[in-house]
Simulated scan of single mutants.
Amino acid sequence: MNKKVVFPIILTTVLVCTMIPAVGWAENSSLEKINQEIAQIRARMSEQKKNISSLEQQISAIQVQQKELEDQLLYIDMRRNETQNKLDKLDGQIEVTKGEAVKAQQQLDEAVERVAKRDVLLKTRLRAMYEHGTVSYLEVLLGSTDFSDFLNRFHALQTIFEQDKRILEENIRDKETIEAKKKEVDEHLAKLETMFAEAEKLKADLDSQYKQSVAIKAELKEKEEDLHDSLVQFEENLLAMARQEKAKLAEKIRMQGGSVIASGGKLGLPLPPGSFTFTSGFGMRTDPFTGKSAGHNGLDMAAPKGTPIYAAEKGVVILAGLYRGYGNAVIIQHDETYSTLYAHIREGGIQVKVGQVVQRGEKIAEVGSTGRSTGNHLHFTVYKNDVAIDPAPLIR
């Protein structure tokens, strides 16, 4: 061989061999940097999730306080109504008792007037006896001219005696009866007025409590709204971080060879051929739980429990755990556009971790029936720009 030809070939080979480690080192360095950036983003997302959880707990606590205040306001309002009814009833009783007191006072005034008239009558008789000299009942009887005159004088004296006795008894009775009645009415009126004053004070206290509770409720409502505003801001920040993470994952995937989906390829079967039966397709169907027509965002593939589940394409695991009604689930991000969901995985059946790079056809989990499921099957969803699309045309 010509030496002039051999030397350039050898030189080229040496240069290529020298450059390969340098290129590999550069790629590894860039990949490590991306991994660090992803880890930092996830750390910030984790802290943000804690903040969101704390806010949600505070909002929940405030809502509990608001419910308790609502119950308290209802109770106070009920007692206010009861107290007002009591006040109205007492007010009516007071008016009636005042009428009785006026009537009793009138009766007492009349009795006093009767007593005064009787006193005048008795004083007139005493004055007449004084003016004509003191004459005993015995002298009147002994002055009789005959027996008939004696009887007449005796009956006359008896009448005077009975009349005087009756006047005195009526005086005593009138005074005692009417004064007792007046005292009873006054005591009853005083008692009613005391009860009215106590009820008024209770009503005032209840009104004060009601206003205070309303004010506290307004403060709690304002605080809840502020927390909701903060929560919205935190959730927006978390969403922005999720977009950053997705962008970094897409960059990582591109560095590792890109996605077959993005280049127009097909997805691999997520279950071994012949091991499953399609039981539900993408689109509208009858919900097995409610019996109503509802949308279905993926394919259901019935298979025995423990059947291996494979990654439909190369990508990075972004979720590996419980996921709402899907039970145990895995989500793989394939590039900046596509991701796939594998749901209802059996307990202990997840074989991958978040951040792990998986290859097409690599086992990631095992079939189960966790979450909102009626039997062992795999629910498989394909997302394009975070919107579910029919997986059937993409599977080969």
Score class of each variant (00 low, 15 high):
Asp205Leu: 04
Val316Gln: 12
Ile253Val: 14
Thr134Trp: 05
Glu162His: 07
Ser275Val: 10
Leu141Asn: 08
Val260Gly: 06
Asn85Phe: 02
Leu269Val: 02
Arg285Glu: 05
Gln256Thr: 13
Leu319Lys: 13
Ala128Gln: 03
Ile34Gln: 13
Ile59Gly: 02
Arg324Tyr: 11
Ile62Arg: 07
Glu366Gly: 06
Ser60Met: 01
Leu206Gln: 11
Lys252Asn: 08
Ala302Pro: 02
Glu131Leu: 09
Lys175Val: 09
Cys17Thr: 12
Ile253Lys: 09
Gly133Glu: 02
Ala190Ile: 01
Glu162Asp: 05
Val316Cys: 09
Ile76Arg: 00
Asp386Gln: 12
Ala262Cys: 01
Thr337Val: 15
Phe154Ile: 07
Gly258Ser: 08
Glu336Leu: 03
Asn171Met: 14
Leu69Arg: 07
Gly268Thr: 12
Asn171Glu: 11
Tyr383Gly: 04
Glu56Leu: 10
Glu225Met: 06
Glu200Met: 10
Arg118Thr: 04
Val317Glu: 09
Tyr75Arg: 02
Thr194Met: 10
Arg166Tyr: 10
Gly92Val: 03
Asp207Asn: 12
Val6Arg: 12
Glu37Ala: 13
Gly306Leu: 05
His377Asp: 05
Asp77Glu: 14
Leu322Ser: 10
Glu32Lys: 15
Gly258Asn: 02
Pro288Glu: 08
Ser280Trp: 01
Val352His: 09
Ala22Lys: 13
Arg80Cys: 05
Thr159Asp: 09
Tyr210Val: 00
Leu238Glu: 11
Leu157Trp: 01
Leu231Gln: 08
Lys353Asn: 11
Ser144Thr: 10
Lys266His: 07
Pro288Lys: 11
Ala329Leu: 11
Asp386Ser: 15
Ala22Gly: 03
Val14Arg: 00
His132Gln: 14
Thr194Leu: 07
Gln107Ala: 14
Thr286Gln: 06
Met1Gly: 13
His228Gln: 14
Leu73Ile: 09
Met284Cys: 01
Asn376Asp: 15
Leu138Ala: 01
Ile59Trp: 01
Arg254Phe: 04
Ser275Trp: 07
Ala312Ile: 04
Gly281Ile: 05
Pro304His: 05
Ile331Val: 15
Val316Tyr: 08
Ile309Glu: 04
Arg80Gly: 06
Glu162Tyr: 07
His334Val: 11
Asn35Glu: 15
Arg125Ile: 04
Val317Asp: 05
Gly371Ala: 06
Gln158Arg: 14
Asn171Gly: 14
Gln36Arg: 14
Arg114Trp: 04
Lys363Tyr: 03
Phe380Pro: 04
Leu341Phe: 10
Glu198Met: 02
Glu200Tyr: 00
Ser339Val: 08
Ala26Met: 08
Glu27Gln: 14
His296Ala: 12
